[in-house]
Amino acid sequence: MGRITLDKVRKAFGDVEVIPPLDLQIEDGEFVVFVGPSGCGKSTLLRMIAGLEDLSGGQIRIDGKDATNAPPARRGLAMVFQSYALYPHMSVRRNIAFPLRMAGLDKAEQDRRVAAAAEVLNLTDYLDRRPGQLSGGQRQRVAIGRAIVREPSAFLFDEPLSNLDAALRVGMRLEISELHNRLCTTMIYVTHDQVEAMTMADRIVVLRAGQIEQVGTPLELYRSPRNTFVAGFIGSPKMNLVSGEIASRHGAETIGIRPEHIAVSDSGGEWHGRVGVSEHLGSDTFFHVACEGIPDPVTVRVGGEVGVRHGDEVWLTPDPDQLHRFDKQGLRIT
């Protein structure tokens, strides 16, 4: 079981409130991703759940039991750190067995569980090596192995993939998702990378300055961002946000349109502009168009390869059904 409740959780360092009172309910077996720009308090929040930071107020309940003041060891949670935090002086086997040793399990049981975890994580051949002799991906797997042997009620991941190169990151992402499908244990995952959030999460918590901007499934966030911050943060490439006269024509302070929801024509359309840089990815083409009456270039995404060149004149037409409208406070108008 791993049902985690944050009840008016608050954190202040001296006079600086980094997390104003915050409520969140994480259901058992859920994969929840905390995402936000650096400094938004997502790591602090995770560390508070872990018990590595104190709360300045509020309560944390794990499976209904108050864990606010419980030391980390008593919470039944496991954590995977950004730097992996493996014990450099211990072999992989002893690293993975460490939590079991601390729990006082007998040697045979330790060996059995370590072997099982190594099997799952493809580490069987590396058990007698030191962390220093492993590659980044393997170290990551050892860190995960150390977390799973304890059979915790929830896993906490603190930007676990940020030290890996791009190719490995995609692979590990799949492995962690696979692990979640197999174990069905609650996972809380912190990242600044919205792609990780979108691809892995059951539910995403978008944070800014310690505050929850929106909570929802990846598609909810994509389809109906609650405000301009979420709109701009979720989705790649970023949603185009346009304010001024064009926005007021749609009865909003700001309008947002995703690059994939803009039609391109060389003969006529709503916005007229000139093509700047275009990025050819093979499967898609992104190009940036400087439009009349819009200060920032508009990003457009077109499937496949299109014959548009730098300097060409084009007309753009946003799909009216996919247009997001925001009011003066940046909140979504429904």
């Binding site: 018990g51 590595l52 930071e53 104190d54 003041n69 030391p71």
Partner: peptide, 8 residues
């Protein structure tokens, strides 16, 4: 790294 526990 700073909880009341570790500080005391």
């Amino acid at each position: 790294m700073a909880t009341r526990h570790s500080r005391s």
